[in-house]
Design a protein around this nucleic acid. Structure first.
Lengths: 238, 238
DNA sequence: ACCGCCAGGATCCTATAGGATATAGGAAAC
DNA sequence: GTTTCCTATATCCTATAGGATCCTGGCGGT
């Protein structure tokens, strides 16, 4: 029976038996590169790796217990998304914190895309997708009030991604996902209680979506982003 | 005697006449990866490699005379921009031709971003940038009428990129560059005489920019994209 | 005639070694 | 005391070898 190979648990005995460091185990199933990519991306998104920090390939080799090639490929992919930067013969470095100007540009672009996406979603979104959005929003409100801001942030990203997906335009969705990735890192540094206000705004948006009111959904999204911008821009330095 | 090896082994054929204007030192010292990246990207953009074609790493190794590692990294970067796709244990493949739906989505997003960019550019663009746009447009009109559509396509991309750059929003510019990359490949398959009409529309846009008329520039850009869409959508299959 | 099975070849993925380069720290010269 | 130069180390970049996987073509069974 060829399928479901035993996965070759014992491998790589010769290496240096990683020092007491965590040595997180990464499962092999669909490529080590993807695994490494998601791992580093997760570390950056959760601020386990702070912005503007150097990422040494060799140390990643020692930490993860894999060789340079997949790490290099994963970092190259991260560079293309803008999460890390590369200098020739110097190395990789996590992207620096968003400054005021970049935050302005980010919200400028959000305001161009997201209200329109909400309008389209109100018109074209399937009922199933709508139910998914509603379920997510209900799940956001009560529980994770203070325990972990991370959860709220993830769910907020998913909320906006669902609406972007409902717009039917895959390119817009991808562009917004890119923006939210960067925004997430910025927002994570200020655990402020944006959650409650944001949830109220989400509810208004959902009401408009449920009634299939395109114009109303568009303006609700615009108001939501405007307020989110007001809440955050105080924290942007410079 | 220190090493100082000439380094240049079996290189590619003569480069494609780089613009002799800037003679910066970043000639070839910026790594083989970038070289390979630009080479493959150029081959795809010029349709020397057709869409939906497999890209074998080994054949690239033999063809370019470099080893797998830099090729793999270049392909990984191309994948992140959407020009090629990857399947685990299968290989890389150039992205397929845009279908009708994708073309619609692309123009939908262009219409969201570019008119706004033109509006901002009319307000914020520096005089130097404006002169650059005008110079490029003048250079497009007379010369390359029939000789090579490639040149026009490149210059058209640069034209729009200059305006996007003039908007002051770097994120919008990047997103548009991404879109234009894909559009370029599509458009290149139909050498139709879009050039003359496009140039006329460009002139109207430039007139609005020169007079710093924001609303006029926005509507001119919108009209330009609308017409471009009309010219192309007939060719989209399905 | 059709379908499942299996070997061969090609390709991809990972690991390791060696050459090349930037950055840090100290010593000498002004 | 400051500046410049030089050496040493750590890191990156490229090249090559070996193990793992997928696709193609042929064979035998039904």
């Amino acid at each position: 029976m060829p399928p479901s190979t035993p996965r070759t648990a014992a491998r790589r005995k010769s290496t240096v038996t990683a020092p007491a460091a965590k040595q997180r185990i990464l499962k092999r199933g669909h490529g080590i590169v993807d695994e490494v990519y998601e791992l580093i991306r997760g570390d950056i998104m959760a601020l386990r790796i702070k912005p503007d920090t150097r990422l040494s390939i060799d140390s990643l080799v020692r930490q993860l217990g894999v060789s340079q090639t997949p790490i290099r490929e994963a970092l190259s992919r991260l560079e293309a998304t803008g999460l890390v930067t590369k200098q020739h013969f110097v190395g990789y470095c996590t992207a620096p914190q968003l400054n005021r100007r970049q935050l302005d540009e980010l919200y400028e672009m959000r305001l161009l895309l997201e209200p329109y996406a909400a309008r389209c979603a109100a018109q074209q979104m399937s009922d199933e997708q709508l139910q998914q959005v509603i379920a997510l929003a209900e799940h956001m409100e009560p529980g994770a009030s203070r325990t972990s801001y991370d959860r709220f942030a993830d769910q907020d990203s998913e909320f906006h991604d669902l609406i972007a997906s409902g717009s039917g335009n895959h390119l817009v969705r991808e562009a917004l996902a890119r923006l939210h990735t960067h925004l997430h890192i910025f927002r994570l540094r200020f655990h402020s209680e944006v959650t409650k206000e944001a949830c109220n705004e989400h509810d208004k948006l959902i009401a408009a979506l449920s009634r299939r009111q395109a114009a109303e959904a568009e303006s609700a999204m615009r108001a939501h982003i405007d307020k989110s911008y007001s809440r955050l821009k105080a924290f942007a330095r410079e």
